[in-house]
Structures are given as structure tokens and as C-alpha cells.
């Protein structure tokens, strides 16, 4: 019953390499970076977040329920997978990333490392 290949078109090239690019918002404030990503159709257990070195990878498998024998007639979400990568900069603390995933919307918070927090620099006038 739950077969997502029927909802999305079959990929023509090596399946493992093809993915949709999810839209994101990236906002930076004094304490760190907040990233929002749209991954509709991905259940919580099919979402894969990974930080390796300075690369953040967001990946998710789409899982939709389709009735038996369904034929796709129009597909805008045409692949069963999302993937997007970002390069983190040095002042971000990759060990303290926190994530919320709710109804296909991902919110990631990547705080800045202690030493990189902004400090007001006093200007001495002589």
C-alpha cells in the first residue's frame, strides 16, 4: 500500500544520486545560525542529518501512501528524496546543533562557539 515510487516518477539515472533540492531559509543572529528547510512527505525516521568535518548534510526519503494501482498523471515532486549540503564556518559549534522536525518542516539551530560570541570592543579615546 505505501509505495512512493508510484507517486513520484521513476528516475532515469542512477537512483541513489538523484535528489530534490529542498528550499531553505538561513538566518544569522548574534548567537548563531537558524536554518529552516521544507521536506514535505518525509517521516521523522527517514530524516538524516549529518555533520562530517565542516559539511552539514540534510537528507530525507519521501514516503507517501498511495492506493494500489495508482498511476501518476502530474508530478511536481518528481523524485522520492531530498538532499542538500552546506559548508559550516569555523566559528560555528557543530557539536551543539539542535533540530526540530514538525510536519515536514525542519528547524536547525547551530550556535556559535563560545570564543566566537560577539564582544563589544571598547574604544579608548586618548
Amino acid at each position: 500500500m505505501s509505495d512512493n515510487t508510484k507517486v513520484t516518477r521513476k528516475p532515469e539515472a542512477p537512483a541513489s544520486d538523484m535528489a530534490l533540492l529542498p528550499p531553505v531559509d538561513v538566518i544569522e543572529d548574534a548567537g548563531g545560525i537558524t536554518l529552516y528547510a521544507d521536506l514535505p512527505g518525509v517521516p521523522k525516521d527517514k530524516l538524516n542529518l549529518q555533520v562530517e568535518g565542516d559539511t552539514l548534510t540534510i537528507e530525507g526519503e519521501i514516503s507517501l501512501t498511495a492506493p494500489e494501482g495508482m498511476e501518476s498523471s502530474h508530478a511536481e515532486v518528481s523524485l522520492p528524496r531530498y538532499r542538500r549540503m552546506f559548508t559550516l564556518s569555523k566559528e560555528l559549534d557543530a557539536n551543539k546543533v539542535s533540530a526540530e522536525f514538525n510536519q515536514g518542516a525542519l528547524k536547525l539551530r547551530i550556535p556559535k562557539a563560545e570564543h566566537a560570541q560577539p564582544r563589544r570592543i571598547e574604544i579608548a579615546v586618548q
Binding site: K6, G41, P67, M70, H74
Partner: peptide, 14 residues
């Protein structure tokens, strides 16, 4: 995405 079966029309809005 829109799909068809002989018995129904299935619409998926992301």
C-alpha cells in the same frame, strides 16, 4: 502531485 486509479483521483499537496 496528482494520480489516478480506476476508482479515485488522488491529490497530494506538499
Amino acid at each position: 502531485n496528482v494520480g489516478n486509479t480506476p476508482h479515485s483521483v488522488e491529490i497530494y499537496a506538499f
